[in-house]
């Protein structure tokens, strides 16, 4: 099939970017979206042009490295998958496809479609852990039973792959879904309870410092999240925040 691609090209963070048109004449519907971009890049390189930079690694929806804003939606049109899991059979012959980076003040563009998401790392460094030593000899794993429903809920929150689609989807570029998923995972587990108050306070403080926007409950994040992380996490985080008694 034939496609017209409109791809965001930006040499580096300091220069202005723009959408550039590319035509592909022979796209195989069974290729993945990223394989389609590989094919484009191959052609560009052979022609002596610069290939389009984009992030990716596992190509199976788990590392969270791929991004891309495709036709106005993070990770493209399908629900519950990351860009690397999207296949070209989802598009029609003759379609025009807009491909842009995840945009947010806290995610500056590095080059073309590659953005800097290290703000997420810094939020985690501010408190996204349980302070146990790794070299000690902790108690036997079965000493503290955890109700299955609680463990499963903690797991569901923990499935976040840290991709940043929630931020890109949000008109305020809020990182609430991401931060709340981590806070929920740890707050739900007895091991994480001990530090719950300081954790939520420190992570939220860091989140604000990174320049993410406020949450106005539009719910766009939940719809675009490739792991379908639920808005309940945000509600839980707000409760944790109130419990922590931090003044805003």
């Amino acid at each position: 099939m034939k496609l017209t691609l409109k791809i965001w090209r930006q040499k580096n963070p300091d220069q202005k970017g723009k959408l550039v048109d590319y035509n592909l004449n022979d796209v195989n519907p069974d290729d993945s979206f990223l394989e389609m971009l590989d094919t484009l890049n191959y052609e560009l390189i052979v022609k002596g042009e610069n290939p389009v930079a984009f992030d990716h690694d596992c190509r199976e929806g788990i590392c969270g490295m791929c991004s891309l804003f495709i036709n106005g939606r993070p990770h493209g049109p399908d629900r519950g998958i990351a860009t690397c899991q999207l296949h070209m059979r989802r598009f029609k012959d003759g379609d025009t496809v807009y491909i842009e980076p995840f945009r947010a003040r806290a995610f500056p563009v590095i080059k073309d479609l590659v953005v800097d998401r290290s703000a997420f790392d810094r939020i985690q460094q501010a408190g996204g852990y349980i302070s146990v030593n790794t070299s000690g000899n902790p108690q036997d794993a079965n000493t503290v039973p955890i109700e299955k429903t609680v463990a499963d809920a903690a797991f569901d929150s923990a499935t976040c792959i840290g991709c940043g689609a929630c931020v890109a989807a949000c008109k305020n570029a809020s990182a609430m879904l991401f931060v709340s998923a981590k806070i929920s995972q740890l707050a739900l587990l007895p091991q994480g309870e001990v530090e719950a108050k300081s954790r939520v306070a420190n992570m939220v403080k860091q989140m604000d410092e990174e320049g993410f926007g406020n949450c106005t409950n539009t719910g766009a994040c939940e719809i675009e999240c490739p792991k379908e992380i639920s808005l309940e996490n945000i509600a839980r985080m707000n409760r944790e925040y109130l419990k922590a008694g931090v003044k805003g």
Partner: peptide, 10 residues
Amino acid sequence: IDQCVAQGVP
């Protein structure tokens, strides 16, 4: 396994 559970691995 003890270590991972203490760290909150679900």
